[in-house]
């Protein structure tokens, strides 16, 4: 997993609530069997004026000049500032894959949908929840040249005037993100606990182990 330490970057203001994962990466791009290459199609229906298809060369497509990602002043942003319930809808991990592939490392919002929030940590993206008033204030301040520095170790966001906003994160998630640890390897360290649980469970609920089988190809 990609590690996360600190990011100092422009802030991209996406002033919409309930941004769903269908909007982040539309369904036609989910046909890929790879994890990479989704960045050019991030927010496809908002970002381009034509209908996107997986094999397109996006550099030649007509862009929507009003969409924030297409404004030159936000072209290099790695921090996305947005509204409540970001990432709602489909569980598709293609959404954080597309955000990460585009270069987004931090998303700041008053709230996130649960599955999306989890998926971010698996892909080196730090989702930060701040209260709605603080997010409102950031929306008022953000503009061309506005940068924030996000430091995971100290759980702080440093504003251009030097003032600091703190944020919360689960200690275990923080540790994994800081070190870029392989979740599966960590869990397999508990293989004996898993087997002991299964042995116990097999006594309590034997119908969940073995038993009826399906015919299949």
């Amino acid at each position: 997993m990609l590690a996360f330490d600190r990011v100092k970057s422009q802030v991209i203001p996406l002033d919409r609530a309930n941004v769903d994962t269908d909007a982040i990466i539309p369904k036609q791009f989910l046909k890929s069997i790879r994890r990479t290459g989704f960045g050019p199609f991030l927010f496809d229906e908002w970002r381009y004026l034509d209908r996107g298809e997986p094999d397109m060369d996006c550099s030649r497509r007509p862009k929507n000049p009003d969409f924030v990602l297409n404004k030159p002043e936000y072209a290099h942003g790695q921090i996305l500032l947005t509204r409540e319930n970001f990432g709602c809808g489909s569980s598709r991990e293609h959404a954080p894959w597309a955000l990460a592939d585009y270069g987004i490392r931090v998303i700041i919002a008053p709230s996130f949908a649960d599955i999306f929030y989890n998926n971010c940590f698996k892909n080196g993206i730090l989702p930060i929840v701040l209260d709605a008033d603080t997010v409102d204030q950031l929306f008022r301040e953000v503009g061309p040249g506005y940068e924030l520095e996000v430091v995971l170790e100290t759980q702080t966001i440093v504003k251009p005037d030097g003032s600091v906003i703190g944020f919360d994160i689960d200690p275990s998630r923080k540790e994994r993100l800081l070190k870029g640890l392989d979740d599966i390897a960590l869990t397999l360290a508990f293989a004996d606990d898993i087997r002991a649980y299964e042995a116990r469970r097999r006594e309590e609920a034997p119908w969940l182990f073995g038993g009826e089988q399906l015919d299949w190809i």
């Binding site: 991990e93 599966i184 299964e198």
Partner: peptide, 15 residues
Amino acid sequence: GIGTSEVEHVLATQT
């Protein structure tokens, strides 16, 4: 529902 990384995690660990 879970994401694809978690699908892999469940396949590998059943947890």
